[in-house]
Design a binder for these strands. Structure first.
Lengths: 252, 252
DNA sequence: ACAAAAGTGTTGAGAGTACACCCATGC
DNA sequence: GCATGGGTGTACTCTCAACACTTTTGT
C-alpha cells in the first residue's frame, strides 16, 4: 500500500460530495479542559458454584468505604490494555487471564469530583490461579456474589449489570467458560459454570455432555476427580479447536 | 437499595481477602499528563450495491490531504455518544441514525502529535436519508467503497477493518440491515445488502425470502417498485418485532 | 446395602439446505 | 415475443429438546 501524503486520488468507485461542515473543527483542548481517563476492571470468577466479582473498598472520599471496581487513571504513555492488566495484577496473581475491553463509560457526572471517562475491561480468572496473600488491611478487597451485590460507587452498578449481560452473551456462543475453570475439570463442573452464569439450573446433563463431546472442544484425560460418589473423569480444553462457535444467522 | 456510605457489611456469601496491593494507587494526573480524548465515527452506507464508508480529507499536517475518519475531541462536559452524534451531524443530514460504540483505541503512538485515545463509534445510515449539500471545498468528504479504500491516516485502516468485522457479525444475528435501507424496500434490495456486506453473492433467493417472511421481521405494503421486469412488492421493517434474533448456543 | 454423583441412547419436531420453473411488466 | 427481474414449493438432513435408568465408588 503506497502512502500518499498529498491525498490519494479517489478510486473509480469513490463518490465525493464536497460540502460545508456545520461547525468548524475544534482545536486541541487546553489541558484543564481535558476529561480524565481511567480504566476499571470487572473481574469475574466462579467459586463454590457462585459467580463472584472482585470489589475494593474506596479508601478516600467521596464514597469512602463504599465498594467499587478496581481501577485507576491511565498514564500518559500507557496502552489501555496494559493499564487494565496492571490493575488486574495489583489485585490478583492470576496469569494468562482472559481480558477484553467491555465498554467505555463517559457520562459527564458519573464521578462527582471531575469529568472522568472510564474504559472498562472484563476479566475471567480461574479460582485455582488466584494467589491471594494476606495484607496489611489498608485496602479491603473482597469477592462478592454477583447476584447479591452491596451498594457500589459511581455508576459501577450499571457497569456490573452490563458486564453480566456480556458474560452471558459470550458464554452462549464462545468457549470462554474454560477461563473460569482449572486446567482440568469434570463435565459436571463445566456444566455448573453454565448453570450459574446463565441462571438456568436445569440444563439437561445428557444433552450437555453430548454437545460438548461431539464438537471436540474438550479432550478427556486419564485422570479422575474424587467426588462423593463415582469418580468423575477430568477433561481439558482442546486449544486446537476454534475458540468461537459458529453463530447462527438471522438470515440464510 | 440502601446506600451505605460507610461501607456495606459483607453479605453472607462475601469472601474477603485483605491483601496488599503491589503499587500504591496513583493520584489524579496533572493536566499536562492527561491523554487527549477523541471520538471518531465509522459511517457506513450501501449505495448502488456497494458498501461505502465516509472519509474526510485532513486539512492540516500531519497527514494533510490524507483520508481519515470523521472525528474530534471530546469537550469537557459532553457525553461520548453526544460527541459522536455531533460528528455525524456535521457530515450528514441523516436522522434517526443507528449508532453504537465500537471500541476504544488507545495505543500510545497512534497519533504522532500527542497521546490521543479515541472512542470509536459505528453508524449505519440509509442512503435516502442523506441530504448532501454542495460546499465550499474547504473540507472534502467522500463516500469510499469499503473494499477499495485509499490509504488512511493514523490507525484508521485497522479501525475500519475492525468495524467491518463487527458489521458482518451484527448482520448475522441482528436486524441492523434495515438501517441501511430506505423505509420501504424490496426483498431483493434487502438480500443485496446481505450479499454485499457478507461478501456472499449467491444466497438462495427462496430460502432467504422464506426465512424473512416466516419470522415476521418484515411487513408487506400494497405498493410496488418499478424495476426492469415485474414490479417488486415493497416491504417495511416491523418495528414491533424483537430486534435481535435468537443466537444459537454453543452449549445446550 | 445404601447414599451420592457419574455416566449413557432414543425418539420426535423443527430448522436449514439444496434445487428449477412460472409470472408480470416494459420495450 | 422476448428480455428482465420477481416470485413460488418440496424433499432430505441435521440439530435441538425431552426423557429415566445403570454404574461406580465410599461409608
Amino acid at each position: 500500500m503506497d502512502l500518499a501524503l498529498t491525498g490519494a486520488p479517489p478510486s473509480s468507485y469513490t463518490s465525493c460530495m464536497e460540502y460545508t461542515i456545520r461547525e468548524p473543527p475544534r482545536g486541541i483542548p487546553a489541558p484543564e479542559q481535558r476529561p480524565l481517563l481511567a480504566v476499571d476492571v470487572v473481574i469475574f470468577t466462579v467459586r463454590e458454584t457462585t459467580l463472584q466479582v472482585l470489589l475494593v473498598q474506596r479508601p478516600e472520599p467521596p464514597f469512602q468505604g463504599v465498594w467499587a471496581l478496581p481501577g485507576g487513571f491511565v498514564q500518559l504513555q500507557e496502552p489501555l490494555d496494559e493499564a487494565a492488566r496492571r490493575e488486574l495484577a495489583e489485585h490478583t496473581d492470576a496469569q494468562n487471564v482472559y481480558l477484553e475491553q467491555l465498554y467505555t463509560f463517559g457520562a459527564p457526572n458519573r464521578d462527582p469530583r471531575a469529568r472522568v471517562v472510564s474504559v472498562v475491561y472484563f476479566a475471567l480468572v480461574s479460582p485455582d490461579h488466584l494467589d491471594l496473600r494476606p495484607g496489611n488491611g489498608l485496602v479491603s478487597t473482597c469477592w462478592h456474589p454477583m447476584y447479591n451485590l452491596p451498594p457500589t460507587a459511581f455508576d459501577h452498578a450499571a457497569i456490573l449489570e452490563y458486564a453480566l449481560q456480556r458474560l452471558r452473551y459470550k458464554l452462549e456462543y464462545t468457549a470462554v467458560a474454560f477461563q473460569l475453570l482449572p486446567e482440568e475439570f469434570t463435565l459436571s463442573e463445566l456444566q455448573d459454570v453454565y448453570a450459574v452464569i446463565l441462571n438456568e439450573p436445569s440444563l439437561d446433563k445428557r444433552n450437555f455432555r453430548k454437545k460438548v463431546l461431539k464438537n471436540g472442544i474438550v479432550t478427556p484425560t486419564n485422570r479422575f476427580r474424587e467426588t462423593g460418589g463415582r469418580p468423575a473423569r477430568l477433561y481439558r480444553f482442546s486449544k486446537s479447536q476454534p475458540f468461537e462457535g459458529r453463530a447462527p444467522r438471522l438470515f440464510p
